[in-house]
Amino acid sequence: MIPASFDYRRAHDLDEATRWLGELGPEAKVLAGGHSLIPLMRLRLAQPSALVDIGRVPGLDTIRVDGDRLRIGALVRHAALARSEVVRRALPLLAEMAAEVGDQQVRARGTLGGVIAHADPAGDYPTLALMLDAEIVTTHGSHPARDFFQHLFTTPLQPDEVIREVTFPVAAGPHRYIKFRRRRCDWAIVGAAVQQSDGGWRLGLTNCGPTPMRARAAEAALAEGRTMAEAALQAAEGLTPPSDLRASSDYRRHLARVLTRRALEQAAA
């Protein structure tokens, strides 16, 4: 299939991108790695009037530690995250997630900013961003992750707003991400992420609702000194995961509990 016709503009900097997006209106879309957008366009499920390509905007592919924050440019690709020594030291869970995104071709092209902006609850980075209170820094300001993932594919980003970078807290303690899937290159049927941070556990779940989810009841149980197995039983508290061809909602709730337990036990081991 080939996409419906669209205009294409390549931005030289973010000011230009923002200006064009403002002129072109809400039917225009930002193109970065294109690994979510272009497949949708090929199926004509997305028919944007124009693409503003930010792929060659300089300065958006940097990774650095700034005090207690890890700052990652929006255009940093999965493969770069996976092999970055900086990420591996400052937030190894992110590097491990990046290494498991899609397949090699996807990892070579897809970007962190693209995944965040797409706000697919089956994406891995949104889970990490939510559970660790990441900040999404844009051309218009900054959004805390907890306010960012509003619903399925829905964020507060304005039509002319572009993500510059995402900042995560540095967290190098025990961690684990278990991505349950049928095929290696698939999205998670359910993903369970655990990270010890500031002495407590942060627990996140992928593909368990319309947004990434934080297993707060289980976090609280751990904070109260319950065992990991006991706490994990509460991982599905409040979840209403989707039912689809891969898994029923009940099975996803069950996986949320099992995978959270396993992730905790493996992280602690």
Binding site: F180, R182, I189, S248, Y251
Partner: peptide, 8 residues
């Protein structure tokens, strides 16, 4: 024999 089916 998907995981979902076996679990059910």
């Amino acid at each position: 024999a998907s995981p979902d089916r076996l679990w059910q």
